[in-house]
């Protein structure tokens, strides 16, 4: 059975849904503001960040199939460090991005763990060209001991069949 067929309607309570929407919006704000070190604090230390290949969008196994991005937490930190340096030329000058997030659907498969689907459109403008990246996020969220929600997996699945014309995913999608 496909993942889509097993999802069912999202039925988390209003308060939780609101809390999670606020978290997604805050994450988007940090990313658009290039506050990447602050963004890292939203992640658990076993977090992974996945962008599947455009011709294998359903792939669940980055160990066996090639993704566009399949970062472990250490790689996410390396990616942020790289992007913070002045020598990541593809992001100097930096892209201006705007993450738009809608259709947030919160599932709670086990208590205090949330599987959150949302739709995104991310606009990227740089050096006279603007591109849009459209797709679906899947965030896995866990409640940490201090009561706050943290992201333990972040997957961005693009609708585009090819990264043409976008060319690259050099910012945090």
């Amino acid at each position: 059975m496909t993942e889509m067929a097993t999802r069912g309607p999202a039925l988390a309570d209003l308060e939780t849904t609101h809390e999670i929407q606020a978290l997604l919006n805050y994450e988007a704000e940090l990313l658009d503001g290039w506050q990447l070190t602050e963004w890292l604090t939203l992640l658990t230390e076993d977090c992974c960040y996945l962008v599947p290949a455009t011709d294998a969008p359903d792939s669940e196994s980055p160990q066996q199939a090639v993704f566009i991005i399949s970062d472990t937490y250490a790689q996410i930190c390396g990616r942020v460090e790289r992007l913070e340096s002045a020598m990541a030329f593809v992001e100097r000058p930096r892209s201006r991005t705007r993450h738009l997030i809608t259709n947030v659907r919160v599932h709670e498969p086990v208590p205090n763990e949330y599987k959150v689907y949302s739709n995104f459109a991310v606009y990227r403008s740089r050096r006279g060209v603007s591109h849009v990246f459209v797709g679906e996020y899947r965030h896995l969220l866990v409640r940490s001991s201090d009561g706050s929600l943290r992201i333990s997996e972040r997957r961005a699945t693009l609708d585009a069949e090819e990264l043409r014309p976008q060319g690259k995913v050099s910012f945090i999608l």
């Binding site: 962008v51 980055p62 160990q63 066996q64 199939a65 090639v66 993704f67 566009i68 991005i69 399949s70 790689q75 390396g78 990616r79 790289r82 990541a88 030329f89 593809v90 990264l163 976008q166 060319g167 690259k168 995913v169 050099s170």
Partner: peptide, 25 residues
């Protein structure tokens, strides 16, 4: 296989740590 793919993604491709800078070049 896992290391082969990881080595691939760290350098190569549109989300890698190197290819996008080549794109800029």
């Amino acid at each position: 296989r896992q290391h082969r793919i990881q080595g691939y993604l760290e350098f190569l491709g549109p989300g890698g740590f190197a290819t996008p800078d080549d794109n800029e070049v």
